[in-house]
């Protein structure tokens, strides 16, 4: 969402908000399999169905991301003006099996003086 507002002849304001919500899931069922026994005895290095069923859990993806920006500009004269903006951005990750903990937030700010000719 975004809004631009000419508050007065000299003052212009703007604001925007962006939101993303992403989810992923994987349904996978491993049936119990018979244990395999060789002449040398049962082989220890076989995955169990419980282990492979972890694929469901390890494939979950869930994150929310949002960004809010407010800003504006003020004309001192027809030529001289100032402008400023502030942005807050946030990333919330609910699952960490592939890229670890990706939670983070950031502030961005800009302040400037300009001249039109």
């Amino acid at each position: 969402m975004a809004v631009d507002y000419q508050a007065t002849e000299k003052l212009k304001l703007n604001a925007s908000f962006t939101y993303n919500n992403a989810k992923d899931s994987w349904d996978w069922d491993f049936a119990d399999r018979p244990s395999l026994v060789y002449s040398g005895g049962e082989k220890p290095h076989y995955d169990t169905s419980e282990q492979n069923d972890l694929i469901d859990e390890y494939s979950d993806l869930s994150y929310q991301q949002y960004e809010l920006t407010v800003g504006g500009s003020y004309n001192f004269t027809e030529s001289l003006y100032t402008t400023a903006s502030l942005t807050y951005s946030d990333f919330d990750s609910d699952e960490m099996y592939v890229y670890g903990d990706e939670d983070g937030s950031a502030y961005y700010g800009y302040l400037g003086v300009g001249y039109r000719f």
Partner: peptide, 23 residues
């Protein structure tokens, strides 16, 4: 005809936790 604008400004940034996705 010559027109345009020039700006002198400052940007700043601050992050918390992991910046790899948010930035």
């Amino acid at each position: 005809h010559l027109s345009g604008n020039v700006e002198i400004g400052v940007t700043g940034m601050d992050t918390d936790d992991n910046p790899a996705r948010v930035n």
